[in-house]
Amino acid sequence: MSVNLLPQELRPKGSYVKLSKTLKKFALVSTIVMLVTSSVVLASYLLLRYQISSSIKKQDELKGNIKALEQTEQKMILIKDRLDKIGKIEKSDNINKGVGILEDVLGTLEENVFLEEVELKPANAQVVIVTGNSLELTHFLSKLMSQVKLVRIDLVSLEYGPTKGYEMKLSLSR
């Protein structure tokens, strides 16, 4: 049998003792939660560190493999550089289209229709056509319009001389 020798006023009240017990339980639970959380945080941190270091290791390995293919890369860089510049040259003003127009115009010429002069510029192609009579001239023009792909045909001049016949200057663009 226990004997309480403390004076009654030094003993805590029953409700406080009960609250103290509850608080102790809370403290225990909180400690457990804190320990579990800390372990999870630490484990996540270590896992991430491991993943980062293995990724860096893989990167080094890949860099080594890419370095081994340096010659291939050099060739590709060279090809791309040249193609880029060749593309710019091809896009610059030139008379390549005019050469096509001239070839097509030659294909439409008939027996008594002559090409006398050609001037090719990036913007257009100018041709001078000479023929003996107006019928052939009309026939040539209709053939030119139907057979040659052109965006615009401008009649620059049309002259007639009894010895030369009809001389027509056309400006053609594609």
């Binding site: 103290s20 102790k24 403290a27």
Partner: peptide, 17 residues
């Protein structure tokens, strides 16, 4: 005595928090 009986668990709880 009432406060004294609460002081221990409260300090532990505060420390843990």
């Amino acid at each position: 005595p009432n406060i004294m009986v609460l002081l221990g668990p409260i300090s532990v709880l505060l420390g843990v928090i």
